[in-house]
Amino acid sequence: MKALLISGLALALALSFASAEAQQKTATAAETKIGWQALPQDNLLYLDTDQGRIVILLAPQFAPDHVKRVKELVKNRFYDGVTFYRVIEGFVAQFGVPEHEWGSRAKLTPMKAEFSWPVRGADPYLLVQRPDLLAEETGFNQGFAVAREQNQEWLVHCPGVVNMARANEPDTAVADIAIMMGQAPRHLDKNMSAFGKVIWGHYAVNRVRRGEATDGGVIGSAAARTVIKQARLGSELAADQQLPLEMLSTNSSEFSQSLAERRSRTHVFYQHKGNGNMDVCYPQVSVRLRKAV
């Protein structure tokens, strides 16, 4: 009888450990699922250029009207065959149709600017720096670097951010899109309607043909420009043409840990550890291809 009791106790303990291990694996899987979020194909803009594929993550939660305009233009094939006609080294790569080349294209109505929006308390905001050099504070909101001041929030012009080109007046953006590259031109913050960012194909952006600085980056000859062969939303593509991309949540413990490590410079390489301050454009939000299950 004693042997049976001991055997039963051992079995119970084994089952208990097995259950605990299973719960731990389930919790770990849940954390992984929360930490990495699949990106909806309807908010991915694929630019297939003669220099490679560029993928832009659109942000309708911040600039809904500009994202709606871009999606409409894509579905109407407006961007198919257009070129990067203004490219300034270390600053911007702008594509669309120069005004003098519009020809038979329909005239589009200029858009009302979406420079900023009221802070929303329910958003999963992560503070990075307070005060910031150019705002009261900066942080991350749903994968995007943002700045906040006086209850207003706006996208920060980190490298890779895209905005809608405009004239001097604020409500004049129409269709041309500019990609920030090489640096963070933060003088454009709250002065341009930013509506997304490049998350894939940065190498292709870096290979876009440049214009001359003396000409304001404008490439006069269409034959000398980088061409967008086609622009499609991910939801328009066949499954085998889509990229199953996922992004590390900026509200995850994994992302917070990476920020802490960058802020404190814990690696043995660093002889000077800094003062703990951080530029919001420094930590990049990781994007990867989703692993097959």
Rank of each mutant, 00 (worst) to 15 (best):
Q183K: 09
G196E: 14
P98W: 08
R105P: 08
H267K: 05
R86G: 06
L126E: 13
H66Y: 11
A204P: 02
I179C: 02
D215G: 06
R290M: 05
G217L: 03
I6D: 13
K33R: 06
Q284A: 08
C281Y: 02
Q150A: 11
H187Q: 13
R166A: 15
Q41I: 00
V87T: 10
S252E: 14
L39M: 15
D42P: 00
D176Q: 03
Q129G: 12
W102V: 14
L57G: 01
W117H: 09
R263N: 05
L45P: 01
T138Y: 06
Y203E: 03
Y282L: 12
A222F: 04
Y46T: 06
C158P: 03
I54V: 15
L134Y: 09
Q37Y: 00
L39T: 00
N76T: 10
D132M: 08
P159V: 07
H100P: 06
Q61S: 14
T26F: 04
A238E: 14
I177P: 03
A147E: 08
R166L: 10
G276N: 02
D48Q: 12
G52L: 09
N151T: 05
N151H: 08
A204D: 06
R207S: 15
D189F: 02
V268K: 13
R148F: 06
V97A: 07
A167M: 11
L4W: 11
G196P: 01
T28L: 11
V82R: 06
F255A: 02
R207L: 15
A223D: 11
R263D: 04
Q61Y: 07
L289Y: 03
K190H: 07
H187N: 10
A27D: 15
L289D: 02
R210W: 13
L188A: 08
M111C: 06
H157G: 06
Y79R: 15
V293T: 08
R262Q: 15
